[in-house]
């Protein structure tokens, strides 16, 4: 395989595998937040802001994968 091809493959694999974990995490977070909302609709503002915070922190892991993929591809 050519070096350039391997790099493209590596970048794809880096972001692809790196997105699995955060994907599962964000799914769990969203689902649990919906459950909480169903049980206690009055607590919506608190649940919402905490959910967004949790999602953002889970998403940060995918962002590190994105950074690695961009570095592999362009640097």
């Amino acid at each position: 395989m050519e070096a350039e091809g391997v790099r493209l493959l590596a970048a794809g694999i880096a972001i692809g595998l790196g997105a699995i974990g955060p994907g599962i995490g964000i799914g769990l977070l969203g689902g649990r937040a919906m459950e909480a909302l169903g049980r206690n609709p009055e607590a919506a503002p608190v649940i919402q802001s905490n959910m967004i915070l949790g999602i953002a922190l889970a998403e940060a892991i995918a962002i590190y994968a994105l950074v690695v993929a961009l570095i592999i591809k362009f640097v």
Binding site: A56, A60, I63, Y64, L66, V67
Partner: peptide
């Protein structure tokens, strides 16, 4: 690391 995650989240 917050700087990186802040910046790259929006950019990404």
């Amino acid at each position: 690391a917050r700087i990186i995650s802040f910046g790259f989240r929006l950019f990404g």
